[in-house]
């Protein structure tokens, strides 16, 4: 079973690399969004520094939505999903594996790009560690919750847009605790806020690791019938 999961993930990674787009597109979108917000807000560096964690988290969240549509749709269209569903792996595990590859190809590149974009926004040096840490903990939740939206809309025309609309409300706790982790360093929130935010964020991520695959598998089952 372990080998089957690894093969599935490896296949998704190969496809993502070969088909291009994917993670690269998300990072590009991330860069563009952050730049546009900076242009919109104005070049005031101290203001930018203050709202940088919020901008970065929101842009990251939007960028991770971009690639959701691909998560199950291609595999449903060419029949791969039917084959996988007939195979030995439970659909929940398949959904988890695919959400994990989504994180590897989208969440991880965004996570790597975030510090560089932080420099553009004049993010104070002491905010980098908590912010990156919060993104490392929080981005898997984006992929696993996103998998729910992707699975529910897999058979729908223009499903990507609908998936985003369905999923964003569920992203709110991730956003709040993610930005909250950086708040102590930015605006002098009470000490301990960072640890509290990070542990809540961890709890949200753990919960999404369970809820995501179960709900996504239920959604996929409806599409496969």
């Amino acid at each position: 079973m372990g080998r089957a999961i690894a093969a599935l993930i490896a296949r998704d990674l190969r496809l993502a690399v070969r088909a291009g787009g994917g993670g690269g597109m998300a990072v590009f979108f991330f860069l563009i969004t952050v730049s546009v917000v900076a242009v919109g807000v104005g070049p005031n560096l101290s203001l930018l520094a203050q709202i940088a964690p919020g901008i970065l988290w929101v842009a990251l969240l939007l960028s991770s939505l971009l690639t959701l549509e691909r998560l199950f749709q291609a595999d449903l269209e060419d029949g791969t999903l039917d084959l996988l569903a007939m195979g030995p792996l439970p659909l929940e595990v398949i959904a988890a594996a695919k959400a994990f590859s989504h994180w590897l190809t989208t969440g991880l590149p965004l996570l790597v790009a975030a510090p560089l974009l932080g420099l553009l926004l004049n993010l104070p040096v002491n905010v980098f560690p908590p912010l990156i840490l919060s993104m490392a903990i929080g981005t898997p939740a984006l992929s696993f919750l996103g998998a729910i939206g992707a699975a529910l809309t897999v058979g729908v025309r223009r499903g990507g847009l609908l998936a985003s609309l369905l999923v964003v409300p569920f992203y709110v706790p991730v956003l709040i605790f993610g930005v909250g982790a950086a708040d102590e360093a930015i605006s002098g929130a009470p000490p301990g806020v960072m640890m509290q935010a990070l542990s809540f964020l961890g709890a949200v991520t753990l919960a999404s690791l369970v809820i995501g695959p179960v709900a996504a598998a239920a959604g996929l089952r409806a599409a496969l019938k």
Binding site: L152, A215, G219, R221, A222, A223
Partner: peptide
């Protein structure tokens, strides 16, 4: 039925 029910329950 199924997708909508899953969404309502996740919500």
């Amino acid at each position: 039925t199924r997708p909508a029910a899953v969404l309502a329950l996740v919500g």
